[in-house]
Design a protein around this nucleic acid. Structure first.
Lengths: 224, 224
DNA sequence: TGAGATTACGAGTGATTGCTCGCATTCGTC
DNA sequence: GACGAATGCGAGCAATCACTCGTAATCTCA
């Protein structure tokens, strides 16, 4: 769950306990809906114009809401991006989970890759704003920070996966390889998001081949 | 040569011939120097703040020049980025040339990659603004267009290279592979630019391994 | 040295934009 | 139905920024 959304059913308790936490104002269902509308609209406008070119008024207009209402739910423009990015990070984290439970004996590497990459690609195609916020050169610093734990976890997972298939490599090389893998992946993702639907399977296969080829290079390197 | 810079030694002739070409005002050496200063300063500020967050006043201040002077040499902010990007594109084009003259019989693929990639990486590390303008999600459309011919040429070169090492693949697959190669390369480049000097050789080697592994996958795919 | 072009300045302008404020409306609850 | 809280509005404020303009210094070349 992202930071901004507060559970509406919550009898006013445990508020006096924390002194500097601002009182969690009860939110009506209408408010929750507005927040969802605003985030949806923000995603659309971010995709169309990039982060810094989108105006808060444009987001409000797209959501069919006045600027004043927007600022009732978000303290500023960055908070909108942060809430959106937080939600994306949570969803991606779940999609990345399958990587952790792969059994390296039963599943060959390329099958594992293909299986896990499919849903991730689909997610990014459904939420193009995610890429705008995460790989856009334009994103405010504290929004980028929101993805740091996610990136760290992903990095660790890739390194662990590599350690299984190339156990002879030293840890430093594994980490380097994981970093490069992530970077390459990030480079190819925009292609997948921008592509026509019909091209997606072929492109996904290419991405798998790219990563697989790299992994084989790493394996060879250790053996030789 | 980029669009903005005009040759200073040019006896005032052939100006009346073209009607709508604005008269090429003779530029003194001082002016040329100012342009260089401004482009240099613009690159620095772009790297620090990204394109849209940099103000023309900040560029002027960094160059030690008044805003008015800046607008004597560039009609608007985009033109500064365009001039810078044009210069970068020209330099990159030269650095990419070696790829065209590789003899596939004499030079193994990995040696060719390593040899050509070194100078390119060095260039990007010397000119980090190049990446900001070319892969930043923030760049104005007509600046992105400036790199289109360069990208097209590079794409064609990669496809040609692939055709040598994997001649059995159909053209469409070669083009797709070249696109993916470029995207992966673009993803890894920021890593190389941000890295410490000591990490650069290792990272460059990883980039080579990544591309090489992909190429080998492509070769296998055709043979099998 | 003097005329004309180029370079330089920097306060100012108009437009944009993130955000506020006072007030009207709707909702949940007793 | 009545009261307080939450929601909603939108004109407008303050700040920012790309860009201009009048003027003055400096250069080129005869």
């Amino acid at each position: 769950m992202s930071a901004e959304t507060t559970t509406p059913a919550q009898p006013a308790e445990a508020a006096a306990a924390e002194p500097d936490a601002e009182r969690p104002r009860r939110r009506q269902a209408r408010g929750e809906r507005r927040i969802a509308q605003l985030l949806q609209a923000a995603g659309e406008v971010f995709v169309e114009s990039g982060y810094s070119a989108t105006t808060t008024n444009a987001i409000a207009a797209r959501a069919g809401v006045s600027p004043g209402s927007l600022y009732q739910y978000f303290p500023n423009k960055d908070a909108i991006a942060a809430a959106l990015a937080g939600a994306y990070a949570d969803q991606l984290d779940e999609l990345l989970a399958p990587f952790a439970v792969v059994d390296p004996v039963l599943t060959p590497l390329d099958a594992a890759l293909t299986g896990a990459l499919g849903p991730i690609v689909a997610f990014h195609r459904d939420n193009p704003a995610c890429l705008v916020l995460f790989v856009g050169g334009d994103t405010p610093a504290h929004v980028v920070d929101l993805q740091a734990p996610l990136v760290a976890r992903t990095h660790a997972r890739i390194a662990a996966l590599l350690a299984i298939y190339a156990p002879q490599l030293p840890d430093s090389e594994l980490r380097l390889a994981a970093t490069v893998t992530l970077a390459a992946y990030k480079g190819v993702l925009p292609l997948l998001v921008a592509a026509e639907e019909a091209q997606v399977p072929a492109l996904t296969a290419e991405l798998c081949a790219l990563l697989l080829g790299y992994f084989e290079q790493l394996t060879k390197r250790g053996t030789r």
